[in-house]
């Protein structure tokens, strides 16, 4: 099949114009992967094209790139999938990682994020016999997180990392969950405390699901972040903006069936946090004046007692 690849190039040794787009028209087998196509280019069309790959079987995690705007392992992506009608295929290096050359990125940022969460089991005793035994059931919960092959695709497309490079990031947070919930680890509380309090911690994720969508291994990093949030709140860490935000939503749905948009911002900040509430004041007033909303008068839905009962049942059974 014939395909047109549009590749984003970068050569740091060029003094000017070191970034440019280059197109390649190639003829490849219909079952080729995007990686096959790129290797074809490097072998037969342009030996200067830099790319990284190793296993070609989506195990090593080396060939993450952006294909048509979203991060993928190119060895796991067929050309026919991304160009079903013969459309041009746009290939760029992953986002949120520094580019070394062309499609090769540095994984330093990625591993610095991973290091932040102390990615090793920290037991509090030495077992009598050589091994730490954990039951199958106690490890099942961790299987998704343990599938991570450190490819960096989730980091590439994370919307928070685009505006804030201090965010711990999806892969590292998923890994953090893997240790928080490991029965052999003794630092659960510490870990949750840090992840809860740290700038760039669990509450900074926007729940945009980019990481869930692009992760080639079903780690579903965002869901692991939700597991961490749930654990933090259950562990009594309720004083963050995020936890207060979740608790306020819980309270208003229980009370009226709907989110109380007037109280939610104030309760998230805390009623006495004057400095933070002040920041909400101007946009809030603008809304009140222009839209006459959200109204401070919050109405209950009809039959709300039924919804309230569901909340009560959950609270009692917890």
């Amino acid at each position: 099949m014939n395909v047109n690849l549009k590749v984003k190039r970068f050569d740091p040794s060029e003094p000017t114009k070191n970034t440019w787009w280059q197109e390649y028209q190639i003829d490849i087998h219909k079952d080729s992967t995007v990686l096959d196509a790129l290797i074809h280019v490097r072998e037969y069309e342009d030996t200067s094209l830099a790319l990284r790959c190793a296993c070609r079987a989506s195990i090593c995690g080396s060939c993450g790139m952006k294909v048509n705007g979203s991060a993928k392992l190119v060895c796991k992506t067929r050309v026919a999938e991304v160009s079903p009608g013969g459309e041009q295929v746009v290939i760029e290096p992953m986002g949120n990682h520094p580019v070394v050359k062309d499609l090769v990125v540095s994984l330093d940022t990625f591993f610095n994020q991973i290091k932040r969460i102390e990615p090793y089991v920290q037991p509090d005793h030495i077992p009598e016999k050589g091994e730490y035994i954990a039951s199958n059931e106690s490890m099942e919960n961790l299987l998704t997180a343990m599938n991570c092959i450190m490819c960096g695709c989730c980091v590439s497309d994370c919307t928070v990392l685009e505006v804030d490079d201090n965010f711990i990031g999806p892969a590292a947070l998923a890994k953090a969950w893997r240790f928080v919930d490991d029965p052999r680890d003794s630092k659960r509380e510490n870990r949750l405390n840090n992840l809860n309090n740290e700038d760039g911690g669990i509450w900074d994720c926007t729940r945009c699901m980019q990481c869930v969508e692009v992760c080639p291994k079903g780690v579903d990093p965002m869901d692991r972040i939700m597991d961490l949030r749930d654990s933090a709140i259950s562990n009594g860490l309720t004083n963050s903006f995020g936890a207060r935000h979740a608790n306020s939503v819980n309270k208003s749905i229980k009370h009226s069936g709907r989110i109380d948009e007037f109280r939610l911002p104030i309760e998230s900040k805390g009623y006495f946090n004057i400095k933070e509430i002040f920041k909400l004041l101007i946009p809030g007033l603008r809304m009140l004046i222009k839209k006459q909303s959200p109204s401070p008068f919050h109405h209950k839905n009809p039959n709300q007692s039924k919804v309230k009962n569901i909340f009560k049942n959950f609270e009692e059974n917890k």
Binding site: I233, N250, G257, K306, V307, F314
Partner: peptide, 24 residues
């Protein structure tokens, strides 16, 4: 008399409760 879906926020606290409200 339908309730809020939980908006993904209630789900951070209690996924099953969120699913119950949506099932309702």
């Amino acid at each position: 008399s339908a309730s809020c879906t939980g908006s993904g926020i209630l789900q951070e606290k209690n996924l099953k409760l969120g699913d119950t409200l949506n099932a309702r």
